[in-house]
Design a protein around this nucleic acid. Structure first.
Length: 259
DNA sequence: ATGGTCGCCCAGCGA
């Protein structure tokens, strides 16, 4: 089973990129973030034509998450969750579903704007509520995959210039501690199971030719529950779609599981 | 030295 995560930064704009990438990469399950679409406008027909069905939790203009699964007759969605205890949140950032025997939790983590901003305080609160939810999820579903745009670079290897970035938002110690509280539930950063070096990023700012200069961050993660660790055959970042015309600022990340 | 790009839709915010 190949599982992917991609922040598409508007599914309406990126549907050609998504359908091309689905054809190229042939993933079984794909978590999307920043769809920026109301559910009534979700591109069901285009995705059906591409061979995928979907669950989605969207809103106008901002946020929005979706999970796609290949239409091969086996990958049905069960136990869909869009809201968690302790977060009465109109922002559509969380979507959980069971598919193919795997529990998938798609997250579009709050960006936080700047350390100390009220959005930053909300980010830390949001992450704590998500941690509590995941603690319950992994008990019920040991075969747990938590993936998405975490808006946190786990350590300095995940930042193009850690000295200049310092302890700003996406890299601040409290954010990294909140992520550690999640990974310590027994959720493993799949990319780091295969690659220890820095310089591998999943997001590059649209400005300053950041992609061309590889000035990026690795903030899109696929965390695998301990029960899935022995099944992982590969984890990768696919930079190709970031090279295409009118790209998302994020590129897809993937894992291959032998299940 | 300052501001630099997208996407939402047309003003300015969020990332």
């Amino acid at each position: 089973m190949k599982i992917a995560s991609w922040n598409v930064n508007s599914l309406k704009v990126r549907i050609p990129h998504l359908t091309q990438w689905l054809a190229d990469a042939q993933p079984d399950v794909v978590a999307l973030q920043e769809t920026k679409l109301e559910d009534a406008k979700f591109p069901v027909d285009e995705l059906t034509a591409a061979g995928y069905h979907a669950v989605y939790s969207g809103q106008k203009t901002y946020n929005g998450v979706a999970i796609l699964a290949r239409n091969n007759g086996e990958l049905k969605f069960d136990d869909v969750v869009t809201d968690i205890p302790g977060l009465d949140d109109p922002q559509r950032r969380i979507l959980a579903a069971t598919v193919g025997g795997v529990r998938v939790v798609d997250l579009y983590v709050v960006n936080g704007k700047a350390v100390g901003d009220e959005k930053y305080e909300y980010k830390l609160h949001w992450l704590e509520r998500v941690r509590a939810f995941l603690e319950q999820e992994i008990k019920r579903h040991p075969r747990l995959v938590v993936l998405g745009d975490f808006n946190i670079a786990p350590d300095s290897r995940d930042v193009y210039d850690p000295d200049s970035w310092g302890e700003e938002v996406l890299c601040s110690p409290p954010e990294r501690a909140a992520l550690k509280d999640i990974t310590e539930l027994g959720l493993n950063d799949s990319f780091r199971m295969f690659e220890q070096d820095g310089g591998h990023y999943s997001w590059w700012d649209y400005r300053q030719g950041a992609f061309r200069r590889n000035m990026g961050l690795r903030i899109d993660l696929i965390l695998l529950g301990d029960a899935l660790k022995s099944s992982v055959k590969a984890a990768a970042i696919d930079r190709e779609p970031r090279r295409w015309e009118r790209p998302s600022d994020h590129t897809p990340v993937t894992v291959d599981l032998d299940i």
